[in-house]
Design a binder for these strands. Structure first.
Length: 142
RNA sequence: UCAGAUGGCCGGAUGGCCGCUGGCCCAGCCACCAAAUCGAGAAUGUCUAGGAGCGACUGACGUUUCCCUCUCAAUUUGGUGGCUGGGCUGGAGGAAAGUCCGGGCUCCACGGAAACACGGUGACGGAUAACCUCCGCCCAGGGCGACCUGAGGGACAGCGCCACAGAAAGCACACCGCCUACCCGCGCAAGCGGCGGCAAGGUUGAAAUGGUGCGGUAAGAGCGCACCGCGUCUCCGGCGACGGAGAUGGCAUGGCAAGCCCCACCGGGAGCAAGACCAAAUAGGGAUGGCAUGACGAUCCGUUUCCGGAUUGCCAUCCGGGUGGGUCGCACGAGGCGCGCGGCAAUGCGCGUCCCAGAGGAAUGGCCAUCCCUUCAGCGAUGAAGGACAGAACCCGGCUUACAGGCCAUCUGACGCU
């Protein structure tokens, strides 16, 4: 925890030169995020948790995508839902993502039907909301 | 023109902004390797590394140049790999689906053969790497027709079943019926009763022991005859399944094999998470229970031999820890397209040409605009909503299932015109 507190202030994340984004690939990471913070919108559900020390890289956030057969449908629908979420993440994470954290975007029924502009707005608002809560948690833990 | 049959094809189009991924090329940076050049150093020092040339010389010796060995550093060139940037180029399907068959490929098992078991296939001829596939043909059924449908071997090898209905459903049967010729009794007689004969007609059923007609008879019956069906034999056609003709029998073996079964043929098992390799990590942690608690060996302790003690074992379950990487397999194949030849066709042969997805929480896209199509509203201009089924995962040949809309060819029937 002491090592984490040496990071720059949360306000200065936006002008940080290049936030690299990696993809979550392993089931334990998804499970850990599911136990973390959760923010639900009509477009999707956003889950977030700090990246474990072991996989921590400077100035890097990790994102994963999930779409279940039960809520979304067949392979074609699930692929399309994940692609829309990926495109939205690519637009919004460099602006609002926090380095040193893992995020998971869970597709919901609205992921396919919601207009893309609103999907982007949902993601931006959710990321800001999660950013505040994570910031509070960090201050409390110090 | 309408209705229909069969086969084949397509499966929205164009542009803009922002992205993902494979291949090739270029540039920059980094790392490694090799070579060359230059420099420094080492050997190298009281005893002056070695060699060659040169000068000089009796000789000792002197001097200069060059080559060879090792180490370090720098520069240049080339190669390999990584990262970043740029350019060019490729990037889901007809079913990618279901995972139902058949193969290739991989690993495992296995001495050969046979038998048994299990599973599959089932007219005939061909195609194929192979098939439960495909083509042709035969038979049966359906349709005016083009054409369609068919698990299509065996029911005298055996067992079993045939519900309900019906008189009778496998040693067939006699309910309603038909007859009274022969024989017996009664009666003058008609007739009645008995002894009997029959299965034509009715009824049931998926199915009733050949059908129709004539003769025949007391009534009837393949009892006789003709035609049809069926069986057997002969001849002809066909590679064959089978078809045709003739003779003959006098009607026989009812159905179910998708109940068991019999016959013929085929079949090792598991699958790319197969499997191979590199790197990393672990190299045996703890608990509980069971077995052995011997022998051999090792280590330790008792000073040493003898002797004694301790540790070390195996199996199961649970808990904990580590492992999140990469390369190959893996994209040139029973490959696509075109032409020619053989074949009715499935398909085969030859020539030419092309390289055409390779991901790995899994790319092949996200958004916008215009056009196209469909539906709805509207007289209309137009507006609104929407875009079939569906996403490669080792590859190939099939089958099955899903599918908005559209195109082409051939053929059939009806109507109209010439």
């Amino acid at each position: 925890m002491a090592g984490k507190s040496s990071r720059p202030e949360p306000e200065s994340t936006a002008p940080t030169p290049a936030l690299t984004i990696e993809r979550l690939k392993h089931r334990p990471d998804f499970l850990r995020c599911a136990r973390g913070l959760r923010k639900v919108t009509p477009s999707f559900a956003l889950e977030a948790a700090p990246t474990p020390e072991k996989f921590l890289k400077p100035n890097c956030a990790r994102v994963g995508f999930t779409a279940t057969r039960k809520t979304i449908g067949g392979a074609v629908q699930r692929n399309r839902a994940k692609r829309r979420l990926r495109a939205a993440a690519q637009a919004q994470f460099p602006l609002y993502g926090m380095p040193g954290h893992d995020y998971v975007l869970v597709a919901r029924a609205g992921t396919l039907t919601r207009p893309f502009v609103e999907l982007l707005a949902d993601l931006g608002a959710s990321l800001k909301d999660v950013q505040e809560k994570l910031g509070q948690m960090r201050i409390l833990s110090i």
